[in-house]
């Protein structure tokens, strides 16, 4: 039980997929212009991560070592296609705003990385704990980033006006440049906190 909690907690801060491991950058930068998109992307990625970690840790003994990576990618691609069609059918608005970035979950290095370094070596229950932790970690990272960008860029959070109509929107924040710089500064801040902590 202690082991499970440890596996779960890893992804939340210590080995945070975005801020510490710098994985899965493409969707992180591309869809975080509004908080709702960031949250949706986080949840979609978490779903794919959890389901593929479960399947892969179950079938890992059946897969020869040499075709490990292509097999993992195939399994991930299957779940991603499922997610894509599911979103299009039941949440069309979200599917439209995430557009190209749902299929790109296939090549999100976070997902393949966790299969390779965790699910293919550990039993199912530990893989679930790991996937949950990493998924929640990834999601909170996306949400924080997108809240900052949406607030400064459009003066709202989750579409609700916060800063009033008089606020001069920093359009820069929702453009590509703003995405890179906000993420750079956030990673810097997390590094600083970790440096301070380990220094003491």
């Amino acid at each position: 039980m202690y082991q499970l909690i440890k596996d779960f907690k890893q992804g939340l801060w210590e080995e945070h997929p975005l801020f510490v491991m710098i994985l899965g950058m493409c969707p992180t930068l591309a869809v975080t212009n509004t908080a709702i998109n960031g949250l949706a992307m986080g949840l979609a990625t978490s779903f794919v991560l959890i389901s593929s970690e479960i399947v892969i840790s179950l079938v890992k003994k059946l897969i020869p070592n040499d075709v490990r990576i292509p097999s993992f990618i195939l399994i991930i691609a299957t779940f991603v296609t499922f997610t894509d069609y599911f979103l299009k059918a039941f949440l069309p608005d979200i599917a439209a705003s995430l557009s190209l970035f749902v299929p790109l979950i296939v090549v999100n290095c976070l997902i393949l990385g966790r299969q390779e370094s965790f699910a293919s070596q550990n039993p199912v229950h530990r893989s679930i704990a790991d996937a949950l932790g990493m998924g929640i970690g990834f999601t909170w990272g996306l949400v924080v980033l997108s809240i900052i960008r949406e607030l400064l860029g459009m003066g709202s959070i989750f579409g609700a006006e916060i800063l009033g109509t008089g606020y001069r929107q920093m359009i820069f924040m929702i453009l590509p440049g703003g995405a890179f710089i906000t993420l750079g500064i956030l990673v810097g801040i997390i590094n600083l906190i970790n440096l301070k902590r380990s220094g003491n």
Partner: peptide, 22 residues
């Protein structure tokens, strides 16, 4: 600065380049 070395400063540079590409 130590906390910005590696990925963070690269991201900030990329941000400035993205602005130029605009």
């Amino acid at each position: 600065p130590e906390s910005l070395q590696g990925a963070p400063i690269t991201l900030i540079l990329a941000g400035i380049m993205a602005m130029a590409f605009m």
